[in-house]
Computed example of a mutant assay.
Amino acid sequence: MRANIHKPHWNRLHWPFITGLVVATAIGSAWATGWRVNMTPSEPMGIYRMMPLAADTLIRRGDLISFCPRVKLEPFMVHGSCPNGGAPFLKEVIGVPGDMVDVTAAGVTINGRMLPMSRPIAHPKDWPGLTLPVDFGETKLLPEQYWAYGSGLPKYSFDSRNWGVVGRADVLAVQRSSR
């Protein structure tokens, strides 16, 4: 009696393979042309079109920037391509060169105007035992320095309140403000 041997049906993988290849190509193309998906509440969730930062690009108040912060990788940060091992952040530029920024326990002021819900977060409720750095004090933003702020839901944002200024050299891309 002959054993019933089942031969693999590799042809069944033909369409799933093609579909996967098309999806991967579409995602790669979207990423390469500047499209980003934001799933965090620090900026409104959605799809953003970021433009690479050119040498002559002026970064303005209200622009969104994608950048690599110079902080250690925190447990809530997504792993990615930044030098610290994390993924680039997406934040609003709220302070530009020449602005005076003051961080106190009560919140952040830019040129004397208090930002809404800007009290620094040193001990996030969702991460017991975690202590975040807080950059207290006054800072006058120098040329090529910016203050990044999670304006979508600032009371939960990890931003310049925690690590200080963002240097132009750390900015990867920008989306112009519609304001």
Rank of each mutant, 00 (worst) to 15 (best):
K91W: 04
L21T: 00
W15T: 02
G112Y: 09
K155N: 14
V78H: 01
I110S: 12
K72S: 14
L142G: 03
Y48N: 06
M1Q: 15
V23R: 08
A173H: 05
K140S: 13
P75S: 04
H123Y: 02
S66E: 13
L142W: 05
W127D: 02
P88M: 12
V37Q: 11
S177K: 04
L64S: 01
E74M: 07
D159W: 06
M114Y: 07
G112D: 11
K140R: 15
Y149H: 08
P75N: 05
G129A: 06
N84I: 11
R119Y: 02
V78R: 09
M117I: 02
G137E: 04
P133N: 05
E92S: 09
R176H: 10
A26Q: 04
R179D: 14
A173T: 10
A106W: 10
G167W: 12
R161P: 00
P44C: 10
P143K: 06
P143S: 10
H123W: 01
W10S: 00
V166R: 06
S118G: 08
G46D: 09
G150K: 06
P97R: 13
I47A: 13
L58F: 10
G86F: 00
S151T: 07
F67K: 07
V171K: 08
L132A: 06
L141H: 13
Y146P: 08
I121P: 00
F76H: 04
G137I: 00
E74Q: 05
D99T: 12
L115I: 15
W147V: 00
V78C: 00
P128L: 02
I110A: 12
M1K: 15
S151K: 09
V93I: 15
I121T: 05
T131K: 05
G95V: 03
D135T: 01
P16K: 03
R49C: 03
R61N: 14
F17A: 03
P52R: 07
P124H: 09
G95L: 04
